[in-house]
Structure formats: structure tokens, C-alpha cells
Write a protein that binds this DNA or RNA. Sequence first.
DNA 1: ATAAATTTAGACTTTATTGTCTAAATCAAT
DNA 2: ATTGATTTAGACAATAAAGTCTAAATTTAT
Lengths: 158, 158
Amino acid sequence: MSVFFSRSCEYGIQAVLYLASREPESPIHLRDISNALRIPHHFLSKIMQTLERDGVVISHKGANGGFELGRDAKEISIINIVRAIDGEAFLNGCVLGFPSCDDTAPCPVHTLWKKSKENISVMLEKSSVGELSAELGGKLEFIKSLYSHNNPTKEINV
Amino acid sequence: MSVFFSRSCEYGIQAVLYLASREPESPIHLRDISNALRIPHHFLSKIMQTLERDGVVISHKGANGGFELGRDAKEISIINIVRAIDGEAFLNGCVLGFPSCDDTAPCPVHTLWKKSKENISVMLEKSSVGELSAELGGKLEFIKSLYSHNNPTKEINV
DNA sequence: ATAAATTTAGACTTTATTGTCTAAATCAAT
DNA sequence: ATTGATTTAGACAATAAAGTCTAAATTTAT
Ligand code: FES
Ligand code: FES
């Protein structure tokens, strides 16, 4: 697991970024996504269904089916994916695990955390997956480099 | 679970802050800590043992035993507790779950995250539990307010 | 010495997360 | 209509995290 998110959520974010990076060639097969990102196929399937219900992606069943973004890539932020999968709670809790995070009964790191939280909110809300994938030249080439040294035998399909 | 840490780690941080807030009346019984902070007794026991091995706290067995800080409260930072319990990895991973976080193959949020990470490091490294508990007037009175509305029947022993 | 209080140890249970498997439903192409 | 490719559904397994329980070891006080 990463810093903030569940595995499911990480996979969801990765998958949506992958879709954004390959537009407009849609829809894209689940198999392609799971191969490229090294995500267990059926596990990702569940996650994509969650994102489908939330409108982040659209699915097409049957032959030549697959997934595409549910709306313009400029209109999807990371936070939308997080909300769909991990829910609302993740930035509302106390860092130290006390039962509430609240200005009226602040824990010792509350004020410091509040500032960091704003930065993180910007990171997750203000930039769209369109912008994020564009920054990478729309190719997600970096994925190849990330996985290639781990598993050189298995073909990487980015 | 909170934003970053495992439950164990949260409990550990809370317990150490509690010890710091009650100095110099030491040692303090595990039972006192677990009652005050609503932490399962034997679960906290394991966590305190981990902190003991790491030198963050010192334990005294037998009657009139208990726990005290392993060194001056000014010399203990949150990050020391995190390292002892959750390990080193937690700020090194990629936020989006890609296999490495690295300037040479950055994920789309890497540069934004890097800035936030610095703030968080400051929060966890630069302020000691001495300073943190002092800010609260050394009493952790806030704990009482946090828990009182949840469980009004059970006695709170802060 | 004995008893009482406390930490330590470790087996065990419960719950949540992650991952796997098989089958059904749906759709496009022939 | 039939076939094949794909998503959907849901049962199941494996693993990890969180919590519970009982007993042993250690220390202080009597
Ligand atoms: S109360 Fe702890 S972070 Fe706000
Ligand atoms: S590579 Fe993703 S946060 Fe650094």
C-alpha cells in the first residue's frame, strides 16, 4: 500500500490514468490495462465496476468491448477516483488516530497537518487526469521503465 | 486507520504522547494508558514492547511497574515511533502505488507530492513529543473531550 | 517466603483486504 | 442463429491487520 490509499484505490487511479493516456483509442480492454499495469485481472474488474457506477468510466460489454473515460479527461481529478473507491473519510481523520480532527479539540500535530492537507488537496483536486497524463507526453512511457527491471521476461504491453 | 499509519502505530504515538504529558510521574501503568486512550490492553502491550526494544520507552516489571519515556521528551520525535512500529517505508513509496518513487521515472503527481512530503517530514521529525505535549499544557485534556461524547458511561481516566 | 501487581509471551480468534476461480450475461461479427 | 470475445457476478481462498485470552515471569511490599 502506498501512503494514503488502499491497493484497490491505487489500481483504480492507475487504470484511469492509463485510459487517459491512450485516448482517443477507446474502448480499451480490461486485459490490456491489467497486463500493462500488472494488476490482477479480476481484481481490477471489480474496481472498474465501482468506477463505472460512479461515472468515472464507461464500460462496453461483449466483443470489442472495454473501458473508456466517463467524461472528458479534464473533468476527472484523482480525488474523484479516491471518493469512488476509498470513500470520503481519508482526509478527514486525525493523523494520530484520535477520534476526530477538529479545530476545537486539536491534537498536537493538528495545525501542522492542516497545512499539509491543503497541499495534498491541491494535488488531488486541482489537477485533472487530463493534465497529469499530458505532462507525461500522453504515453505513460514511465510505466515501462518502472516494471521492466522487475520482470524482464513477461511482456509489457504499454 | 488514519491517513498514514497503522492502528498499531497510532496507538504507539498516542501512548508516548500520553507518557510525555504526565511526566515526571513515572512509571505509568499500561492499564492507565489503555484506559485513558481506549486502547485494547494486550494489544497496546505488544506495541509498548516494540517501543521498548527500540529505546523509545523503558518498562519496569512487577508491582509498581509501568512505562516511562526512554529518553528526554525533547529527544523523541513522532518519526522515531513510526520507524519503530511501521518501519522505514512509509514516506518512500509512490503515492499512486507505482513500484518506485524516483525523480528519474516520476509518476504524474510526483513533483507535487515531493513538496507535501517535505512538510510532512517537518511535522514528524522536527517537533519533539516534549514540545507537542507542552503545547497542550502538558495535560492532554483534549483527550477527555474527544472520547467523552462517544462513551459517556465508561469512566475516563486522564 | 508469600502474595499481589504488573509486564511479557504467545497461542488463538476475528475482521478486513487482496487475490483467484468458475460461470453467466452481453454484445459484435460472421 | 452461432460463435467468440468480453464484461459482470459472486463464491471462494490467502494473507495481513487488529483484537482477545490464558499463562508465565518478574518485581515490590508485606
Ligand atoms: S486532530 Fe489530529 S490532525 Fe486534526
Ligand atoms: S513516483 Fe509517484 S510519488 Fe514519486
